[in-house]
Nucleic acid binder design. Structure first.
Lengths: 216, 216
DNA sequence: AGAATATGAGTGGTCAGACCACTTTCAAAA
DNA sequence: TTTTGAAAGTGGTCTGACCACTCATATTCT
């Protein structure tokens, strides 16, 4: 009768339980034997659901202690995915484009918001640009955060990892000009220019990445 | 001694096996009992590894038949998103905005592509608009498909469901004008206008929805 | 009394064996 | 030749049993 996979139901049930019981990250969830009994399923079936949740980084299990709601998002998911999935070029392209799509949207949102576009964060970035080494990812992440859309931020975070962390590393001297253009345009709330400059940077980054050889 | 999770080892072993045996997408992999024996692990332990792989969309299991390498090997990411991005109470607003974000990007992509923007699909839509009843969703879905980004399409599909299927129902006479404007702009490859018109329609739709009472 | 130790309950990790429901295959019966 | 059905093989589930580990408690030793 019930065609849906059992363990997926359990995944949903556990999620609902967490929500109802108001269990917070770091908290312990009931033991496997307990859960199995209340949900009327065998322990091995329940464990299949738990393994799924664990692989996604949602829970953390410690032998002898228990199972806990994870507080830091685990990255094992991405490792597994990257080793298996990304073979054909279309996937790569889709992921890259979709990530870029979210970034562009974030920039547009920021430019439309006077408060966000005039943030003092940008000044601090400017300082870093001159003096210290500068992590690319910090810049883009800040854009995503300031856009105010948390869902978009999370999707972006996943896509970033999924496309092999394209922002790893620090900015080179070649990139500083790009960054400055982008920052200026944002401060002037000139969305069109900001997006164009960002796209140029992205394109440059992609070529750079290919030049240095990209991992599978 | 062995601190690493057993089932993760198995995941790796399975991956290696697939590589060595040159199993291709769609092919069948050895049965659970067989795998368990050759890998010297219990069947339930092996199954925990398989469930993880299945949740990621890497394999596909069919009762009575066997386990197969998934042939649509990309975009499993989306299922992942559904389970852990949307677990906490994301505001309705974020979901709506993110969906809109993908739709707007799709329109822009289509407008930049001469072939897509001149598709005969639009003519057929025009005809429907005049005569038959017209499903809102058909229109938007077509946009997403024609954008060519399959990942974006799947994310959109999910977001649509999570925002309570905002496109349910047929277009009313009030909306026909909106649709016509959008179609015209697309055919003229005028992205700016197309997006503006689409946003206007979206806004109208949102208000309409609130007026009629929306489910969570 | 205080510190070191031993114990036991509880937990996740693993395994073996047993059914069940289902699909495929192929030989026997029509 | 076609139909039928029995058997083998598959994933799905459950049970009960150990193991390894952690932690709180009680016990013993100094």
């Amino acid at each position: 009768m019930n065609q849906t996979k059992r363990y997926l139901d359990i995944v949903r049930d556990i999620r609902d339980m967490i929500r109802q019981e108001k269990i917070k990250p770091g908290d312990r969830i009931p033991s496997e034997r307990e859960l199995a009994e209340t949900m009327q399923v065998g322990r091995s079936t329940l464990r299949e659901a738990l393994r799924s949740l664990e692989l996604l980084g949602l829970i953390e299990t410690r032998r002898g202690e228990g199972t806990f709601l994870s507080d830091h998002r685990n990255h094992t998911l991405v490792e597994v995915l990257s080793t298996f999935v990304l073979q054909d070029n279309q996937s790569h392209k889709d992921v890259w484009e979709t990530r870029l799509l979210h970034e562009v949207a974030a920039i547009q949102t920021i430019c439309q918001n006077e408060a966000a576009s005039q943030m003092k964060v940008w000044d601090s970035f400017r300082l870093h640009l001159k003096h210290d080494s500068f992590q690319r990812e910090d810049f883009v992440r800040e854009l995503m955060v300031l856009s105010g859309n948390r869902l978009s931020l999370k999707i972006w975070f996943l896509l970033k990892q999924y496309s092999g962390n394209p922002y790893d590393g620090t900015v080179t001297s070649d990139e500083i000009e790009h960054m400055n253009h982008i920052l200026t345009a944002i401060e002037q709330q000139d969305a069109e220019t900001a997006v164009r400059e960002f796209r140029a940077w992205d394109e440059w980054l992609q070529k750079e990445r290919i030049r240095n050889g990209n991992d599978s």
